[in-house]
């Protein structure tokens, strides 16, 4: 169950010379790995290369030891379920029929494909859409159908490109529950822009920056490494002279980064000693959001 997906010095140079992935080396094991990174950092490109649908310009991919671009390609690809950001679907038929056809294209015998389609749709809570024509589905519904297609046939490796973007909170919850049942033990790699989701759902996180992995580790490790200090936000009538806020927020709050041990008390007592009024204090546990901003902040401000 599950296996290693490896990338070795993987490059992708697109037509027009864009270097989307620049020497990515790393491996993904069983469990869930989230790939984060700013827009255009190469996440989708990397995933497509791992899935065997986009040919690397250089370097190697190994899926359970088999190269989807080498002699064992058919076997490597039969292990992978992949949902692109904007999944292509046959449009002239109903959702259930589209999944059945896709299952057939992915190599499932047609009878099994239909059964699998029904099963996967149920797991994802899509049974109500089974009879609806694909061309009439909403954007989010179409994305969920694309995810269903990737999960058909219980693949060992599941690669999902922004699976939860465009999904309502209930649909997201349903997706993660379904993944737990349909792909338990599989190697799941997904991209996301939602740090909370990555923190809650992923055992490992890789932060990409300009086509390379910038940091990797469990959410806990990354937080400890890159954003160990809690943040204190104080809404007050001003900012005490003796304090240096990390930044001033839009609604007038000042944010401070403080030592884990005794920082909160220091900040509040500075307000008190200078007679600056305090309306509200919030202590934020640092999360992947802070890690992300720390790592990619400069990029975002460009």
């Amino acid at each position: 169950m599950g296996c290693l997906v490896e990338a070795r010095d993987l490059w992708k140079v697109y037509r027009g010379g864009v270097e989307a992935v620049r020497g990515f080396t790393g491996s993904f094991g069983p469990g869930r790995t989230a790939i984060m990174g700013p827009n255009g950092s190469g996440k989708s490109t990397l995933l497509a290369m791992l899935a065997g649908v986009l040919k690397p310009s250089r370097g190697r991919v190994l899926v359970c030891g088999r190269d989807p671009w080498g002699p064992g390609w058919a076997e490597a690809r039969s292990l992978v379920g992949y949902a692109p950001q904007d999944p292509p679907l046959p449009r002239a038929v109903t959702a259930l029929e589209a999944l059945t056809v896709l299952g057939g294209l992915m190599g499932l015998p047609l009878g099994d494909a239909r059964r699998e389609a029904v099963h996967v749709m149920e797991e994802l809570g899509l049974e109500g859409l089974a009879g609806v024509k694909v061309s009439r589905l909403s954007g989010g519904q179409r994305r969920r159908l694309g995810l269903a297609a990737a999960l058909m046939g219980s693949p060992e490796v599941v690669l999902l490109d922004e699976p939860s973007s465009g999904l309502d909170p209930a649909a997201r919850a349903r997706l993660w529950r379904a993944l737990g049942r349909l792909a338990s033990g599989a190697t799941i790699v997904f991209t996301t822009h939602d740090p909370v989701e990555a923190e809650e759902e992923a055992g490992m996180v890789v932060v990409m920056h300009r086509g390379r992995p910038l940091a990797r580790g469990s959410p806990r490790e990354l937080i400890e490494r890159y954003a160990p200090r809690p943040r204190v936000r104080v809404w007050g009538s001003g900012v005490p002279r003796g304090l240096k806020p990390r930044r001033l927020l839009g609604d007038g709050a000042a944010e401070y980064e403080v030592e884990v041990e005794r920082g909160v008390a220091d900040v509040v007592s500075a307000y008190a000693s200078e007679g600056v009024g305090v309306y509200r204090v919030e202590v934020a546990r640092p999360g992947l959001r802070e890690v992300f901003l720390e790592l990619a902040g400069e990029e975002l401000e460009e």
Binding site: A74, S78, L79, A92, E97, G107, P109, E156
Partner: peptide
Amino acid sequence: MRSRARRSGGWRALLRGAAAGVLYFVYGV
């Protein structure tokens, strides 16, 4: 390790695709 689908040689890949194509038409029409 369980493969997601049966492996396919050349002709089988072609025929499998053809079966899916026929099915798509039958559904689609």
